[in-house]
Amino acid sequence: MSTDLSQTNDVSLRSLRAALFDSAAGQLLLAFASLIVLVAGFGIASPNFLQTDNLIGILQATAVNGVLAVASTYVIITGGIDLSVGTLMTFCAVIAGVFLTYWGYPIGVGVAAALICGALCGATSGFLIAKMEVPPFIATLGMMMLLKGLSLVISGTKPIYFNDTPDFPVIAQDSLIGYLVPSLPIPNAVLILFVVAVAASVVLRSTVLGRYIFALGSNEEAVRLSGVDTDFWKIVIYAVSGAICGIAGLLIASRLNSAQPALGQGYELDAIAAVVIGGTSLSGGRGTVLGTIIGSFIISVLTNGLRILSVAQEWQTVVTGVIIILAVYADIMRRRKT
């Protein structure tokens, strides 16, 4: 993949510069450096920022958006877009609520139901896009609204609480790490985010699926004409992305101890922003999961830091907007150079 560019044996100054500024690896490095600068800056500006509690708060605030952003990364690398990740997350949370609270199934069944439901909904989007040739923007816009409505219908427009299954909130809220290292009570939600990210990254780099994700994003017609069943793979990709949204749904339901049916719309934009800040190209063919995770953290560090500094809320939104525009601009500059 394109990151390997930096490994070519030409070690001239130019290739070094190219590796730093033009390649995907360079983009990652810069994004990471920006994150460090933000953390350091906020740490200097407020004594409250670098406290363990607050850092754990940031990690926790990143978990759901991070997982959604990973789901979006796959789709965006194929050159598509998925606007339904937020409401699909909610829908999966509601499904988990229905299985656990309404029907009283064991937790394992509820978790499986949410994941399968996510995969099925994703596959539906994929089917609309691949077989019925509905543009991704429209197909997932439709799914977004459809799922939002279904969540409200199924839940009876009320939150579904998990009071009868006290082990369910534990999934996200307890801390495995805290048992091992008592001074680091990092909630499981964060652990799950990292497991999802590592798995997603391995799939993207080292499997046939990952190979096709990049290939579809680079030149879908050439892939089809190479005898690859592109329709099938697109459906698979959207289904995998949907299942990851299911994980996000479980995380948010577990964290809030409830499935909130009205929540979710707008989350897709945060996810897309994280993906873009992380250096994944909206035109497809290029991107990394690591970048997406860094992008998610940039957003949540920024949000938390500005809050800690008690910056007026209106200005927080302005700053986030500026950062997104700069990130996309950086991507465009990079593409112009190559």
Binding site: V37, L38, V322, L326, A330, R334
Partner: peptide
């Protein structure tokens, strides 16, 4: 781009502190 990123961070922090 590197400079821009930095600039953004500085502006953000400046605004924040101010």
């Amino acid at each position: 781009m590197f400079k821009l990123r930095h600039l953004a961070a500085v502006v953000a922090l400046g605004t924040a502190v101010g």
